[in-house]
Simulated scan of single mutants.
Amino acid sequence: MSKHAPIKPADNNANMQNRNPGSSGTNSQYDQNQGNRGKEMNPNRK
């Protein structure tokens, strides 16, 4: 079982604006901040 330190407000604010360019994914704060935008911007969506 691993324990994680709580995220500081300043770190959370930075994570929400950082999509992790150059990596294979994004962080959870960024994903939550974007919300439904990815689905709405999908050109295949009707």
Rank of each mutant, 00 (worst) to 15 (best):
M1P: 14
S2P: 12
S2F: 12
S2R: 14
K3Q: 15
K3I: 08
K3E: 13
K3W: 12
K3N: 08
K3S: 14
H4M: 11
A5M: 05
P6V: 09
P6K: 14
I7Q: 08
I7S: 02
I7A: 05
K8R: 12
K8Y: 00
P9D: 04
P9R: 03
P9S: 05
A10M: 03
A10W: 01
D11H: 03
D11S: 10
N12I: 03
N12D: 14
N12H: 13
N12R: 13
N13M: 03
A14Y: 01
N15R: 12
N15L: 15
M16W: 00
Q17F: 01
Q17R: 09
N18Y: 08
N18D: 14
N18G: 06
N18M: 03
R19M: 08
R19L: 00
R19H: 10
R19I: 02
N20H: 12
N20S: 07
P21N: 08
P21H: 08
P21D: 12
P21V: 09
S23C: 03
S23D: 09
S24W: 08
G25I: 02
G25V: 00
T26L: 05
T26H: 07
T26V: 11
N27T: 07
S28I: 04
S28N: 11
S28L: 15
S28M: 07
Q29S: 12
Q29M: 03
Q29P: 01
Q29L: 00
Q29E: 10
Y30I: 02
D31T: 06
D31A: 12
D31R: 08
D31W: 05
Q32A: 15
Q32R: 12
Q32C: 04
Q34S: 03
Q34G: 06
Q34Y: 03
G35W: 01
N36G: 02
R37K: 15
R37T: 07
R37C: 00
R37P: 02
G38R: 09
G38I: 04
G38S: 10
G38N: 10
K39G: 10
E40F: 09
E40R: 14
E40P: 00
E40D: 11
M41V: 00
N42H: 07
N42A: 14
N42K: 09
N42D: 15
P43E: 04
P43K: 10
P43Q: 04
N44S: 13
R45E: 00
R45L: 10
R45N: 13
R45D: 01
K46S: 12
K46P: 10
